[in-house]
């Protein structure tokens, strides 16, 4: 009797081990096949690209943990970038001081809070299924940005805007530090605070959590605000790296990628692991960078990664199916 009962806990560790195993395998595979792969340059180029998608994946994960989804993460990131970009261009186009950074981060975070609150209101208080609510707000947030910019990419920022992405204290790129920092914060918030505890409970059984005195609506609101804030931070990183802001950046492909990462990391209602997300983001990036290097010169080589990601996801589903028995339908 006890062996079957132990499953969930083991399962959680299994998923982490499985992912870690895949990561090690991939690193060895690409490392042995391509001399340059483990060299510093490719590592540091990964470290600049990966944080954006990693942070967006966390934004997605926390909403999946309460049995929802947030399709508007990328729209939020872009809106944050566009609005803070327009603000900087209008009020401090020549400034190179730290105030530019303050304005950029401050406005972005504010946008994150507001957009998150709108989602939280629709899902938590009106009761619209999150897939529909965020589909609508995705259109709304993108629509505001497109309307204000007439669909154009916003460029011409002061140099200092780029410093967030280009600085690398201690030789580590700043975006990567931000990602690690956010991962640690999310880990503590979800694992060690009552907010995280309530999130897990709400995701497991919303009726029981209501009867246990958890204020479901408030938790849903907090989750979506948190998700919005994380998205807006990703927006800041994107804006700083590309020195531009556009509503077309990433769009649906970024959203799909974050869902893919979440599914791969084994996130379901009531259960999510920041660590698994962290590893999974690395796996995807390693496949991307590695296959790009291996297939250098082959036509369309940059698209092999998409193919490999999809296949990997199916493989993991099947491994889980066989190791954990038949899932309940």
């Amino acid at each position: 009797m006890n062996t079957t009962n132990l499953k969930p806990k083991v399962r959680f560790e299994m998923q982490t081990l499985l992912l870690a195993g895949i990561l090690v395998f991939l690193l060895l595979f690409f490392g042995l096949n391509d001399q340059g792969f483990l060299a510093g340059r490719s590592i540091s180029s990964m470290a600049i690209q990966l944080p954006e998608i990693g942070i967006l994946s966390l934004a997605m994960m926390i909403t999946v943990m309460i049995g929802g989804i947030n399709l508007s993460i990328n729209a939020t990131a872009n809106l944050a970038a566009v609005l803070s970009g327009l603000f900087i261009l209008r009020f401090m186009p020549e400034s190179q001081g730290p105030m530019v950074i303050v304005a950029m981060v401050g406005i972005s975070l504010l946008i994150g809070v507001i957009t998150g609150a709108i989602n939280g209101f629709l899902v938590g208080y009106v009761g619209v299924p999150s897939i529909l609510a965020t589909l609508a707000t995705m259109s709304i947030f993108t629509g505001i940005g497109v309307g204000l910019t007439k669909g154009q990419t916003v460029t011409g920022f002061p140099e200092v805007v780029g410093s967030v992405a280009s600085l690398s204290p201690l030789g580590i790129p700043m975006p990567f530090l931000v990602f690690v920092g956010i991962t640690v914060i999310a880990y503590i918030l979800l694992g060690r605070t009552t907010f995280g505890f309530k999130t897990r409970m709400l995701g497991t059984n919303p009726v029981a959590s209501k009867f246990s005195g958890i204020n479901n609506k408030a938790v849903i609101m907090q989750i979506f605000i948190f998700s919005g804030v994380l998205s807006s931070i990703a927006g800041v990183l994107i804006m700083s790296r590309t020195m531009s802001a556009s509503n077309a950046y990433g769009t649906a492909t970024y959203v799909m990628l974050t869902i893919l990462i979440g599914v791969l990391a084994g996130v379901v209602s009531g259960k999510g692991s920041v660590l698994n997300i962290f590893i999974t983001v690395f796996i995807l990036q390693v496949i991307s960078t590695g296959s790009h290097m291996l297939l250098a010169g082959v036509r369309g080589s940059s698209f092999f990664k998409d193919f490999a990601w999809g296949v990997l996801l199916i493989i993991i589903f099947i491994i889980n199916y066989f190791t954990h028995g038949r899932r309940k339908e």
Partner: peptide, 29 residues
Amino acid sequence: LEGLFLQQTISDNIIVRIIDQMVNKIHLI
């Protein structure tokens, strides 16, 4: 349906009501 979080641990089910009292000064559990 209304009382239990079946997939969560027995221990978590017991403390769900009093989790707010189980935090330290910096609000960590």
